[in-house]
Design a protein around this nucleic acid. Structure first.
Lengths: 253, 253
DNA sequence: CGTGGGCTTGAGCGTGGTCAAGTTGGGTGG
DNA sequence: CCACCCAACTTGACCACGCTCAAGCCCACG
């Protein structure tokens, strides 16, 4: 795990200030004052790179930071003792990994990377500080938490009541939209660096069945998934198949 | 829906102040000052009674209140258009139904009762007020949200990777503990006013299969479930079967 | 050029679903 | 207090979605 501490510097582009990925996400909910934005920039510290398939937080650890993904994908997961694994959430660039978890004494689930990841973190005290200083930021963190919770609920619906193909279709719709809000796709073509085994662990399916369901989606001309890229050929049909209602993601309020 | 507005009055018992169910729950996390406790008592307003199987909030509604269950059971759920239903969470006495959801423009899922329910509510403005006035209360609400989120994650694990019997066993362990923390059971015998159909909708199973799995648990001498009461005969085996690790509920920190 | 991780395919099986018919029992009205 | 009724529960027969095991394939990487 080659960590190399350095302060986060929000990239600037074409003269226009490009918000850091977290600020960018919050903009879906609220305008941020210059002060808020700076507070947020300063809060992110110790940018570090972590390899693929490594743990950032392990089950039982005492949480001391809020992590933010800058690049790469990660996930929360849990192992049962006989080896079964369930991925409970997927974390994309710009995502907060563990909103004020340090209010809890121990992390309930592990947080691991799916690809190489660049991440920043906010120490508990900083979190406390910026959150008491700015009511807006406080609401932003709440908002983020509420949205993740909606996503989690929707996963519950998928795992409980959707068929294998529906689940995958629904997940593709969700991820595509989330990446779009992070400015990482035009909605047609995006990175999707997740193995079929991972997909299975996320959607409660076996690898084999993921593969076959994927073929069904491909066969219907709905999506393409090759070489870590997802292509959505027919978004309308995909959404119809998945019964996808984007409102739960609460984008562009 | 016979609503009869009245202010919430915390019951007193044997000289010792008995906290309102919300305060009581928060005590799992933090001591509350007298001021905090009073603020909380005053925040709860318009106690009302709602019949069984009615909606408190419907999908798409604009949230304006945080509801607190005083008596009875409720649930969040979602219908798919072909009639499939998934219950995404179970709400017990003392539970907050929708933490600061009014930060979101619309409710993603419906909130309905499973039994007759007595509930109080906190208006958005009050929520704002008590939360800015007391850092402790603010943390309490965060804590509650984080715990619900852990529960939600554990459901994801159940639906994704546990067998039917394991799911039910795990749920029984969870509910029993949650009721215990609400002071509503000694850990052996508790109310369980949920039909097998509801259980199926919660755990992603058909009613028929719930029934058969239940018989398996009964046959093993682990639990009894009759007449809206749950009896846990052999907690140890039940937990072992379910692979139940109570830490995710973060009780008695 | 070789190797291993990830993907694909096939065959057989099992958990859990569906459909349909009873049975039980709590709650209501006579 | 009993009779009735309907919702909830139970059982059986059959079926299918998705799992397991096993083998082979592809291709990115060293």
């Amino acid at each position: 795990m080659d960590a190399r501490p350095e302060r986060f510097v929000a990239p600037r582009q074409q003269g226009r200030r490009l918000a850091n990925p977290l600020a960018r996400k919050f903009l879906n909910f609220r305008q941020l004052s210059r002060t808020d934005e700076e507070a947020l920039d300063n809060a992110l510290e110790r940018v570090q790179r972590i390899g693929s398939r490594e743990d950032i937080v392990q089950q039982g650890d005492a949480p001391r930071f809020v992590h933010v993904i800058l690049e790469g994908w990660a996930c929360h997961y849990k192992h049962l003792q006989d080896g079964r694994r369930q991925i409970t959430s997927l974390l994309l660039p710009g995502d907060l990994c563990d909103p004020p978890m340090f209010l809890l004494k121990t992390a309930g689930q592990s947080l691991g990377t799916l690809t190489a990841v660049t991440l920043a973190r906010i120490p508990a005290e900083t979190m406390q500080a910026i959150t008491t200083q700015s009511a807006t930021l406080q609401e932003c963190f709440w908002w983020d938490m509420l949205v993740r919770s909606e996503i989690q609920r929707e996963w519950t619906v998928s795992l409980g009541r959707r068929t294998a193909t529906e689940r995958l279709a629904h997940l593709f719709c969700e991820i595509s939209l989330r990446l779009k809000s992070a400015g990482m796709t035009n909605g047609v073509d995006c990175e999707f660096p997740v193995t079929q085994a991972d997909l299975g662990d996320a959607m409660g399916l076996s690898t084999v069945h993921v593969n076959r369901s994927l073929q069904e989606l491909r066969g219907g001309g709905l999506v393409g998934l090759r070489g870590k890229r997802l292509r959505i050929y027919n978004e309308e049909s995909l959404r119809a198949l998945a019964n996808f209602e984007p409102s739960y993601l609460h984008m562009n309020q």
